[in-house]
Simulated scan of single mutants.
Amino acid sequence: MTKVLLVGASGLVGGELLQLLQGDERVTSIIAPTRRPLAAMHKLDNPHQENLSAQLAALESPVDIVFCCLGTTRKQAGSKEAFRHVDYQLVVESGIAGRRLGAQHMLVVSAVGADAHSLFFYNKVKGEMEQALHQQNWPQLTIARPSMLTGHRSSRRLLEEISAPLFKLLPGKLKGIEGKMVAQAMLRAAFAAPAPGVHVLESDQLRQNGAV
């Protein structure tokens, strides 16, 4: 039976994944640290305080799999530095915590176009985050690179709402994708036959693997 660490459970993909994990008989416990409390749920351990870094450092219970679904926007974060703290630093710290707790597989939400050498700040940070996780030497690392995410969020992202109809028309891996579909693809990847090394799931592959 599997013990899971889920970071980013209050977000779009993380919230969908939390529901899937809760209903999965293979999962015996879910540790989901958040800044604000989640609704009580079977199998859920939800430590919560404003400082997520401190929470990650304080975790002690062993886990088998880490899911990291953290992600924000520069506008929502308020500055480049705040964006980098969430989308790079906290993701890296999630990996460090998972390795310390004995996890053998980490699955992380990145973004289409992630590239540490990109001229675009968002893509560059995502690429640098991926590189940092590579350097943690995970037995198995799965990187999900969705395109524009669609679905219900707890807080509005006006630009995404405006852009979503356009992204539905784009081809291949650029086409927008529902957060629930990404969560389903990640869950399937987590419980597939072990495949050591690094695996990247581009948005079109996420859509195919996450289809009901």
Rank of each mutant, 00 (worst) to 15 (best):
L166S: 01
L187E: 00
S203H: 07
Q89E: 15
E161M: 07
L107N: 08
V212W: 15
K173Q: 15
T150P: 10
V198M: 09
I143C: 01
S10F: 10
P47K: 09
P196C: 09
L12M: 14
Q76T: 12
S155N: 07
K43S: 05
A103M: 02
A82Q: 06
L174Q: 13
L166P: 01
S203F: 05
P62W: 02
D64C: 11
E202L: 05
L201I: 00
V13Y: 03
L170C: 04
Q135K: 15
L170E: 06
G78Y: 12
L107I: 15
R207L: 04
A192T: 03
F120M: 13
L119N: 12
A192L: 04
E16D: 13
A82M: 07
A103W: 00
A190L: 07
R26F: 01
A111G: 12
V27Y: 05
V7I: 13
F120G: 09
G179D: 08
S61M: 09
L119E: 12
A211P: 06
Q89W: 04
G102F: 14
P62Y: 01
N137T: 14
P37C: 08
E25C: 05
K43W: 03
D87F: 08
K75A: 14
K180L: 11
L166V: 13
E93S: 11
M186E: 01
P196Y: 03
V4W: 08
I65Y: 09
Q19D: 14
A189W: 02
F67V: 05
F67N: 09
V4N: 08
A57V: 12
P139V: 04
T142Q: 04
K43C: 01
M148D: 05
L169E: 09
Q205W: 02
L133P: 14
Q205G: 09
E161P: 00
E16A: 14
D64E: 04
F67L: 02
L90F: 09
R26D: 01
V112T: 13
D64N: 10
C68T: 06
H48Y: 11
F120E: 13
V27T: 06
G14H: 08
Q136C: 14
A193Y: 02
R26M: 06
E25Y: 01
H105C: 12
T34S: 13
G98R: 01
L38T: 05
K126M: 03
E60S: 15
A39Y: 00
K173V: 00
E93L: 14
N137V: 13
A32Y: 10
G8V: 02
A111N: 04
S163D: 02
S154F: 07
L159K: 11
T142A: 01
S110K: 05
G71Y: 00
I30Q: 06
A58K: 11
I65Q: 07
E160C: 00
V112F: 10
R188A: 06
F83R: 08
K173C: 01
L170D: 05
A114F: 06
P165F: 12
A97H: 00
E81V: 10
M106W: 05
S94G: 10
D24V: 02
V200N: 04
R74L: 12
Q19F: 03
Q208T: 08
A185R: 02
L56H: 10
V212E: 14
R188N: 04
H152W: 11
L149A: 04
A190D: 10
H199F: 02
Q184A: 15
M181H: 00
D24N: 13
P171W: 03
